[in-house]
Amino acid sequence: MMGLGFSILSGGLTLACMILPILILTSEQTFRSISKAHRQGSEALALSKFTTLFQVYLPCAIPALTAGFILGLGRATAETAALIFTSGYVDRMPDSVMDSGRALSIHIYDLTMNVPGGSNNAYGTALLMIIILLITNSSINWLTQRWNHNLTAQND
């Protein structure tokens, strides 16, 4: 449609559109739930909107924003059907983001449905996917805890 054809880029953009509602919803909820006290405190000290957003609100919001991000990430990784028609499912190494390629989920789908005796490889791919998700989730978790290690306690 936009001249992208079957490409990893168009697949990525499609996934971005799909997880956007999750991200918007969690972000909106998060910023709404930040206590009015912080806003008042910041106004009373005549802090600019920029400082308030980046130095007061964002540290409060990071844990919830990350949760939304992880949810979105999981949703995107599990997506199959939308990708068949956007990024395609050729099984060669893509040359660039404009090239067609296959996501892990499509690989699993293809191995189980179209390749006789491909189940073992499909399980292997699924295991790899689980490991990738575990690594990303736990490293994001670790990062947020590091950022907030001294901020979360007694935060009522």
């Binding site: 912080h38 008042q40 405190g41 000290l45 005549a46 130095q55 007061v56 409060c60 901020l151």
Partner: peptide
């Protein structure tokens, strides 16, 4: 608001270090 300081009913320090709580407005 610089000339009029305000203290609220519920203590509302920002979620940051003690030092930064004081310095954030000074820097601003």
């Amino acid at each position: 608001r610089k000339k009029i300081g305000t203290i609220f009913q519920k203590p509302n320090p920002f979620p940051m270090s003690i030092k930064k709580n004081i310095q954030i407005a000074l820097k601003e």
